[in-house]
Design a protein around this nucleic acid. Structure first.
Length: 833
RNA sequence: GCCCGGGUGGUGGAAUGGUAGACACGGUGGACUCAAAAUCCAUUGCUCGCAAGGGCGUGCGGGUUCGAAUCCCGCCUCGGGCACCA
């Protein structure tokens, strides 16, 4: 069949898109079974929080995902393409407080809206595998995993400060606290409250999580952010005796952590965190009042006040009256307290070396303490503390070592030999606080028995579900707290009266393993079917926003390792996401497009006019997918342009374009050229797909279509078979990007039952990629002076000869001798004079 | 302060040491039309010139190279991450 014989009305995106969306859904085209014989490929977009209809960020994200599902299917893979909804979270609960609607009802409505707009963009999924975080089945396994963590010591409970917003009367997640320490909703200053909280011991995996980053095919930017977050620092920990606290084992000692043990001879004071347990014991009588007042004041400060660099250093510390002995030189140094020393990092105590640390320098100036340099600064040094490399000085036996690295090793060796210290690695990473004082989350499945303390709810009683008859009030505590029927229970061990935990888990817990459940969401006996995980995991391509670079992506890596170590997924599965792609944000008026900012542009507007394919094409064409995009007044024009292009493809492929001159004949040079053009297109576009350069692939399609129009509208005309091949190649290559229009045109050209999405990805014939002639650039001293058309296999001598004969080159050479000629045939000759 | 990215026409962006500005949007001129829309064609970095043809151009200043948007050094600037972490 040639395009000439196809008749079709004009491009009607709504009709075409409705038809194919219905067909993919009815035929389950992209459902996949776990025993599918094709090579497995797992494509996953971060499952969305259901906030209502999709916004442009979703469209962009799910366009990339859908494109890959279709692309890998055409490469002969059995592609797993699941989707679900991150359906727990604060907005649904706030809506409940506002309107009285149950979060489940509210959420269900939002999910339906989001589903409809995802279907409307033509994204295909195995909907049988859909997971929603609030599904009782998913909650059951979520709670099951919590209890395995509890058994393994990976979940534990301790008192910790949480973020409390006085305006909202509620506890906030860290993510909801803005960098300036205010609530992202009310703008109130967030304060700390001490509460008993559940934690996951992610720090047990700190080292592994850090080291394994090196081998991941992730954006460097994301890896760097995770490295910063984990924050490994190497150094030494050692003890200092407190002066006057006796000798031998009875002596009080202070342990300090330092990354610069080589500078220990320069220690002129010691600083403890105000919360340090030794404070009360070492403070001398004459300083007691001052110290107690200081500790009391710091306790009342918010984190923001405490970590502010603005405030006056002279008010941030206090002398305890006590002294410690520097083990390196036996010197007595005063012990201070300062609010900037944190009990949560290292040992909560530091040795201060003002000569090599700027903050210590400033503190020393404020309190009139001595400064000793132990590293020789360069001769031109004019700064204060010197943190660079150099030879050790003023350090007795450690003096004269030429560099810091060697000096550190010598210092640590000495500490270890003395038995008072050792090499030590510290991390900035803290354990993951998972308790949330919220209703719309997964309940933490434990009860508190006066006799047996913390008792896990038996597996047979899982999932622990929240009751529906609760009252939503802005009290800052979960409504579960006031529901006697839920709160009061019996101890699973002794049967005596007990109370349930009323906190729920952070919603990041749900997203830490949902991708494992997708492998076999029907598994009834375990959270994850190990065989299915073996088959599909790790995710071959994960796609999502850069905003999840740290939290979600770090938690998911921790979970995968923990589940592997607990035997719940295959032992060797350490990393969940083999390749990660982080798409850029869509901004409008300088800020991220989001519902809360009220600057959403709904995709449905475009579905109803230019169609989903045009909108998808726009998102692919507008720029590199990893870069941010600014949505402006001009954006609609670009979307319109994408639609014009698709309409042009329609008219060409359906044979309805004006002035088409299609003939039957033996191939002529113009036909051969178009045939080669199709092969060059295959080559170029395939490479673009592989390097995520969709904007240049779309440009290649546009160029090719322009070429085909010129070819088919001349008097010489287009050879029917050649044009048919060119158009079919074009439709095949475009299919992953614009699935509806290509499917429709393919069916129009090849008859009912033939699908472009079932075609194998075309392969370019290397013979046909060769060209006969090239444009050779002739430069004089690196400046372009002429362009010559030469044979592609031109030799160096001939190329140089042609270049020197060029009149334009001759003009430039006038009177000047040629010093040298660089020839890179057939592309370039550079004449140096 | 430390660590990552960026900076190219009026606009979005191409160009992985070798023709700067592909492709598109917008603009200008034209064809078709009673007219408009749609469609099609031409043109469009800046600048000097009637033209032919020059000159200048990838944030700024240096360097490496026959040749630099691309590599190196030093700045400026925008965006992001971490930030009293010892």
């Amino acid at each position: 069949m040639t395009p000439m014989e196809v008749t079709s009305s004009t491009y009607d995106p709504q009709a075409v898109e409705a038809k194919w969306q219905a067909r993919w859904a009815e035929q389950g085209t992209y459902q996949i079974d776990n025993d599918d014989p094709r090579p497995p490929y797992y494509v996953l977009c971060m499952y969305p929080y259901p906030s209502g209809p999709a916004h442009q960020g979703h469209v962009r994200n799910y366009t990339f995902g859908d494109l890959l599902v279709r692309y890998w299917t055409m490469h002969g893979c059995g592609v797993l393409s699941p989707i679900g909804f991150d359906s727990f979270g604060l907005p649904a609960e706030n809506a409940a407080i506002r309107t009285g609607t149950h979060p489940r009802v509210f959420t269900a409505a939002r999910i339906e809206e989001l589903k409809a707009s995802l279907r409307g963009m033509g994204a295909v999924y195995d909907w049988r595998r859909e997971i929603r975080s609030h599904d009782p089945e998913f909650m059951k396994w979520n709670q099951f995993i919590f209890q395995r963590f509890l058994e393994a010591g990976l979940a534990y409970r301790k008192k910790a400060p949480v973020n409390w917003c006085p305006g909202c009367q509620t506890v906030l997640a860290n993510e909801q606290v803005l960098p300036d320490g205010t609530c992202d909703r009310s703008g109130d200053l967030v304060v700390k409250r001490d509460l008993e909280q559940w934690f996951f011991r992610i720090t047990a995996y700190a080292d592994e999580l850090l080291e394994a980053l090196d081998d991941l095919q992730w954006p460097e930017r994301v890896k760097t952010m995770q490295r910063n977050w984990i924050g490994r620092s190497e150094g030494a920990e050692f003890e200092l005796k407190v002066v006057g606290s006796g000798d031998g084992p009875a002596a009080r000692t202070i342990r300090v952590f330092t990354t610069r043990p080589d500078t220990s001879f320069g220690m002129t004071f010691v600083v403890l965190a105000p919360e340090h347990p030794l404070v009360a014991q070492i403070t001398t009588g004459d300083h007691q009042g001052e110290v107690e007042a200081f500790v009391e004041r710091v306790r009342g400060e918010t984190d923001i006040e405490r970590q502010s660099t603005e405030s006056d250093l002279a008010k941030r510390g206090v002398f305890t009256g006590a002294y410690a002995i520097n083990p390196f030189n036996g010197a007595s140094v005063p012990i201070y307290l300062a609010d900037y020393v944190l009990m949560t990092y290292g040992t909560g105590a530091i040795m201060a070396v003002p000569g090599q640390d700027q903050r210590d320098w400033e503190f020393a100036l404020a309190y009139n303490l001595p400064i000793i340099r132990t590293v020789q600064p360069p001769p031109d040094w004019t700064g204060e503390a010197y943190t660079g490399d150099g030879p050790t000085i003023n350090s007795a036996w450690l003096s004269g070592i030429p560099d810091v690295r060697t000096a550190k090793i010598a210092a640590i060796d000495w500490l270890e030999a003395q038995g008072i210290g050792e090499r030590k690695v510290n991390y900035r990473l803290r354990d993951w606080l998972v308790s949330r004082q919220r209703f719309w989350g997964c309940p933490i499945p434990v009860v508190y028995c006066p006799v047996h303390n913390i008792v896990p709810v038996p597996e047979s009683q899982l999932p622990v579900l929240a009751p529906d008859d609760v009252e939503f009030r802005p009290t800052g505590e979960s409504p579960l707290r006031y529901h006697a029927g839920f709160l009061n229970t019996t101890c699973p061990i002794c049967g005596g009266p007990a109370e349930r935990e009323t906190d729920t888990m952070d919603t990041f817990v749900d997203s830490s393993w949902y991708f494992l459940r997708f492998c076999d969401p029907w598994e009834a006996d375990a959270p994850v079917n190990p065989d299915a995980a073996e088959h599909w995991m790790p995710v071959d391509q994960y796609i999502g926003g850069i905003e999840h670079a740290i939290l979600h992506l770090l938690y998911a890596r921790f979970y995968t390792r923990a589940l592997a170590d607990l035997g719940l997924v295959p032992k060797h599965l350490r990393e969940p996401f083999k390749r990660l792609f982080t798409q850029g944000m869509i901004r409008m008026g300088g800020s991220k497009m989001s519902k809360s900012k009220g600057n959403l542009i709904a995709p449905s507007k475009y579905y109803d006019t230019v169609g989903a394919d045009s909108l998808r094409l726009f998102h692919l064409f507008v720029g590199p997918p990893n870069e941010d995009f600014d949505w402006t007044e001009q954006t609609d024009d670009v979307i319109e342009g994408c639609h014009r292009f698709l309409a042009r493809v329609w008219r060409l492929s359906s044979g309805t374009a004006d002035r088409l001159n299609i003939v039957d004949r033996a191939p002529r040079p113009s036909d051969v050229e178009v045939g080669k053009g199709a092969h060059r297109l295959i080559d170029r576009v395939t490479r673009d797909y592989q390097r995520w350069s969709y904007n240049t692939a779309v440009a290649a399609f546009m160029e090719f279509v322009n070429q085909l129009y010129r070819y088919a509208q001349t008097d010489e005309g287009a050879r029917a078979d050649t044009l048919a091949f060119a158009v079919d190649t074009l439709l095949t290559l475009m299919a992953p990007m614009v699935p509806h229009i290509t499917a429709e045109l393919w069916e129009l050209r090849h008859g009912e039952g033939s699908s472009v999405h079932d075609q194998a990805w075309p392969v370019a014939d290397p013979e046909l990629l060769k060209v006969d002639t090239e444009t050779m650039v002739v430069q004089v001293n690196g400046k372009v002076r002429d362009r010559l058309t030469v044979a592609a296999d031109i030799g160096e001598d001939e190329a140089v000869g042609l270049a020197l004969e060029s009149p334009k080159v001759q003009d430039q050479l006038a009177g000047r001798g040629v010093k040298r000629v660089i020839a890179r045939p057939p592309k370039l000759v550079n004449v140096v004079v």
